[in-house]
Simulated scan of single mutants.
Amino acid sequence: MELTTLWFIFIAFLFVGYFVLEGFDFGVGMLVGIFAKNDKERRVLINTIGPVWDGNEVWLIVAGGAMFAAFPEWYATLFSGFYLPLFLILIALIVRGVAFEYRGTRDEQQWKDRWDWMIIIGSFVPALLWGVAFANIVRGVPIDASGEYVGGFFNLLNPYALLGGLVTLSVFLVHGALFVALKTAGDIRERAHVFAQRCGLVAGVLAVAFIVWTGLSHGDAVVWVIGVLGAAAFVAAMLASYAQRDGWAFTGTFLAIGLVVTMLFVALFPEVMPSTVDPAYGLTVEGASSTPYTLKIMTWSAVVFLPIVIGYQIWSYWVFRKRISTENMPADAH
């Protein structure tokens, strides 16, 4: 296998990991404003992701770094053309991270409420815009003969991309609700099941529409198979939720998100940024890659360090695996 193809697969793997892990804590962040009735319940929701949210973001940092090093032309075109949405995502992630740390520094409820809104908004914005961004990457954007983006912001707000944004937003909400059901006990767990089942109907319809559109426009048999498996995993997650099988339900949405993101990368390959101006202007894995020597050094580094990072993250999830409830939240806790 060519190193360029190997690194395309590796970057796809990193983004799959990012979406399946960060997806549920985006969902939990948005749910803070949907069904938490009081401050103690909001603390329960936040504590379900408290030990892991920052580790989940490492996948994005590594994916961005790998893209920059392995495919510098892809990185340059993507970040120049998608500057505004990616900037909004970055600001949202910063605000969200600060909110997690600062909401408990003062006792006033008004202070906590303001930071809770930052958590909600900081989760909503990337949950929506990541779908818009990736749908545009697969659909193609205006790129000229020199590999530069020549469109405007509103070129990114096309029907396919907006549908992609609604899919990630709704599916992340379901994913987050099922994670809450897996990690909590009592009334919050029951409410999480009800929300996941209701929101799951909407998310399922949107996701199927997106999969079909992708298959008809950009796919072959492999893309269709992966998309159908993703839809089947989502249906299985909903059935498991109705049966109160929290672990299987969360595993179902975990697989569904991973399969749909994989479908997008398979539909994209061997291009990394298709051009809507002229197909010949699109960036490919070969044309956008670094030198073979650079890719070789990066490959050995990934072989050494990636298992360590994955092992540590698995260990952290195992350590914080127990359920929590409002009974675990002392009255004087922040």
Results as ranks from 00 to 15, higher is better:
residue 286 E to F: 13
residue 162 L to I: 01
residue 19 F to T: 05
residue 334 H to P: 06
residue 149 Y to P: 04
residue 156 L to S: 00
residue 20 V to S: 08
residue 301 S to D: 12
residue 119 I to R: 03
residue 205 V to W: 05
residue 314 I to W: 13
residue 258 G to E: 09
residue 281 Y to G: 03
residue 285 V to D: 05
residue 81 G to C: 06
residue 124 F to V: 08
residue 42 R to G: 07
residue 192 A to S: 13
residue 137 I to R: 00
residue 164 G to T: 05
residue 86 L to T: 00
residue 277 V to D: 07
residue 307 P to K: 11
residue 50 G to C: 04
residue 66 A to P: 01
residue 163 L to H: 09
residue 75 Y to Q: 06
residue 255 L to I: 14
residue 53 W to I: 09
residue 37 K to A: 15
residue 221 A to L: 13
residue 264 L to G: 12
residue 324 I to N: 03
residue 205 V to D: 02
residue 125 V to F: 02
residue 236 A to I: 02
residue 142 P to M: 02
residue 199 C to V: 15
residue 310 I to L: 14
residue 290 S to W: 11
residue 252 G to P: 07
residue 75 Y to I: 04
residue 56 N to W: 01
residue 271 E to G: 12
residue 22 E to C: 13
residue 129 L to E: 08
residue 134 F to A: 04
residue 188 I to G: 08
residue 179 F to E: 01
residue 201 L to G: 15
residue 7 W to I: 08
residue 91 I to F: 09
residue 156 L to W: 01
residue 315 W to V: 11
residue 44 V to E: 06
residue 247 G to M: 13
residue 211 I to E: 02
residue 208 V to R: 08
residue 55 G to I: 08
residue 297 I to V: 15
residue 27 G to Q: 12
residue 275 S to M: 01
residue 193 H to S: 14
residue 82 F to S: 04
residue 170 S to I: 01
residue 334 H to T: 15
residue 75 Y to W: 05
residue 6 L to W: 11
residue 50 G to I: 05
residue 141 V to R: 00
residue 11 I to Q: 05
residue 84 L to S: 09
residue 191 R to D: 14
residue 184 T to P: 08
residue 43 R to E: 13
residue 256 A to L: 02
residue 170 S to C: 11
residue 303 V to G: 11
residue 305 F to S: 04
residue 152 G to K: 03
residue 50 G to V: 07
residue 327 E to A: 15
residue 10 F to S: 03
residue 151 G to L: 00
residue 105 T to H: 13
residue 119 I to W: 01
residue 91 I to T: 10
residue 266 V to L: 09
residue 210 F to E: 01
residue 310 I to H: 10
residue 138 V to S: 02
residue 25 D to V: 07
residue 251 T to L: 15
residue 155 N to P: 01
residue 34 I to D: 04
residue 121 I to T: 10
residue 101 E to A: 14
residue 118 M to W: 15
residue 59 W to D: 01
residue 62 V to F: 07
residue 105 T to P: 06
residue 17 G to I: 04
residue 35 F to M: 10
residue 223 V to A: 02
residue 193 H to C: 02
residue 148 E to I: 08
residue 139 R to E: 08
residue 239 L to I: 15
residue 52 V to K: 02
residue 175 H to Y: 04
residue 198 R to E: 05
residue 9 I to C: 13
residue 195 F to N: 00
residue 186 G to W: 11
residue 257 I to D: 02
residue 44 V to P: 09
residue 39 D to Q: 15
residue 213 W to A: 07
residue 206 L to S: 07
residue 3 L to G: 07
residue 61 I to N: 05
residue 183 K to N: 06
residue 89 I to R: 10
residue 239 L to H: 12
residue 295 L to N: 05
